[in-house]
Amino acid sequence: MSLWRRWVAFLDRREAATSLALARIVLGATIASHLAYMAWVGGDLLVWADAAYGGLRTLEPGWLAHVGGLTPENVRGLLLVTTFAAVAFTLGVSTRVAAFVTWVGFRTLADLNSHAGGAYDELAKNILLLLLVSGCGRALSFDAWWAARKARAGGAPFDPLVPAWPRYVLIFQLVLMYWATGMQKVSSGWVPGGSADALWYILQQPTWQRREMTWLAPLFPLTQLATLGTWFFEQGAPLLLLAFWFRHTRTRPGRLRAVFNRLDVRSLYLLVGLGMHAGIEATMDVGAFSWATMAIYVACFHPDEWTRLGKRLGFSGGAPRAGWTPRAVTPPAPASGRLPSAP
């Protein structure tokens, strides 16, 4: 089979929507709570209203110019609409419409003031775009419950399967993000062979720290270890892609493939990442970054794995119904047998 046909076959795979639905829930809840808190403390008006209306900067209003510009009313209105859409997206109510409104609203807000945001804005926008076209509302959602109910009542049949490629692209996005940030950590404090003091200094920065961190001084060697660990973890992100590939082609021969699968490098990598993000959350305030990243982490696990976990926790995995989606159905492998299992 030609490379292109294999690529097309790879993207044609379908699976249960559970992983993407979990990504939807994590990201939707993250965006909704982030925006709601912004409004609660009045940060939305300071950050996104124009300086003429009490904001911190003179801003380009974009399409909001057609409705009067960046007035406090417009900013608050857009924020509320986006927050409600994010809640609907989380619950899976009119999921696709909710995803679209959340994407447009969040993208508009996040792009207004380039001085007041972070990588989590870009990450959230990228994930939203993929979830928008993914069918992530076909599990763990009001939409799925409603469609299954109608199907049981003799209505249109409910297809709980969705294309798997949005999940694959999400995984690629995670790898790209880690690798790209690792490649740009060129400070002498980050790279091996240097002072390895980057994390020590970053943790002392008043802007990002949650609390005074000079107490870490006696543990400086540990921060050096964490510095190098972070650098290698990020530089090594392509290994995660390789681990997925080896899982996907587990029936093929090869010692490296066997080692990767025996050690479950995918889970190990994600476990280290989870520890890193927990450390970031405990010591620093970098906004919604870690939570947005977790939206991809949950998508790194195949729906079958979530279904198994759900059953173990007491959720049923029966045929089309709300709650845990039925067993993932993967199309039969092509004749060549090149695609034996989903990553």
Partner: peptide
Amino acid sequence: IGSEQSWKMFIAPH
């Protein structure tokens, strides 16, 4: 699509 990929995160300590 508004998909920026600028991942300059803590590239150097201040």
